[in-house]
Nucleic acid binder design. Structure first.
Lengths: 69, 69
DNA sequence: CCTTAATGTCAAGTAGGCTTTACAAATGTT
DNA sequence: AACATTTGTAAAGCCTACTTGACATTAAGG
């Protein structure tokens, strides 16, 4: 799975810390998500998409066995 | 968070077991999701939406603090 | 340089998503 | 009533999302 979190965040011109405050998660969580260390929960993915004004499917790109075969 | 998994599944006329096989998860997982016992991972939410031919946001209804304030 | 802001790493702990197995309740069909 | 199908419950275990805190690196500006 790929994510466009970093791209969308820099488009908005906000820091990781600012984003983490808006979402009420730790800054570490933002770092890990942008770096692809793990995948967000459904609720957090929804909040991210809301923040960026896009859908979850636009923010995350699912690949291979993450899709129905 | 509310989900329309059960409604969408019955529309498709398939059993929990059939759905669990398509998604390659346990039947127990389907039961728990339909009953609202817990929330699916992002990948599973995506597969469910794909199966039902809708978006994640159409399949799950986020409420209150699950939205940005 | 020196400082500050922004980003990053590491590690330990908590909570919850998902699995497996086994068994019970409900619904339908003959 | 009897049987099969579908749905449900319970419990133990694994893995990972997320947290907190402390410290390292990079980049920018005075």
């Amino acid at each position: 799975m790929k994510t466009l979190i970093r791209e969308k965040r820099t488009e908005l011109n906000i820091t990781q810390e600012e984003l983490s405050k808006r979402l009420k998660v730790s800054r570490q969580t933002i770092i890990s998500l942008e770096k692809g260390k793990y995948k967000p929960s459904l609720v957090l993915a929804h909040k991210l998409a809301q923040t960026f004004g896009c859908t979850i499917e636009e923010l995350f790109i699912f690949e291979g066995d993450e899709n129905i075969e």
